[in-house]
């Protein structure tokens, strides 16, 4: 599986570490709603199809990336540096 790092170019997936779901957004208030914190810390979507994930190019430029990958085919639709990627909160009702 080849991941095209925006800085390094085509690299084998072995050079990357995968953190998973890039959707969760850290709640602003440290003392806020425990439900929101529980969701943020523990709950991750595991969809079939397109999925945005955090990947770390640990064996290369060491950037955090957001990779949009189809979980059934491994086709990669987009790779963006995480610092430039838009954080998207999970839609209501999403597991």
């Amino acid at each position: 599986m080849i991941v095209t790092c925006p800085f390094c170019g085509d690299r084998p997936s072995e050079e990357f570490g995968v953190l998973g779901d890039a959707a969760p957004v850290r709640p602003a208030d440290p003392a806020g709603d425990p439900e929101a914190w529980y969701d943020y810390v523990y709950l991750r979507a595991n969809p079939r199809g397109a999925h945005r994930e955090y990947w770390h190019h640990v064996g290369g430029c060491r950037q955090w990336l957001v990779v949009t990958r189809d979980t059934t085919t491994h086709d990669i639709a987009a790779v963006e540096p995480a610092r430039l990627a838009k954080q998207t909160a999970p839609e209501k009702g999403e597991p």
Binding site: C8, R11, E14, E15, G59, G60, C61, R62
Partner: peptide
């Protein structure tokens, strides 16, 4: 130049 892995070593 490239930062990469060679024989599993960075």
């Amino acid at each position: 130049c490239a930062a990469t892995m060679l024989g599993h070593v960075a």
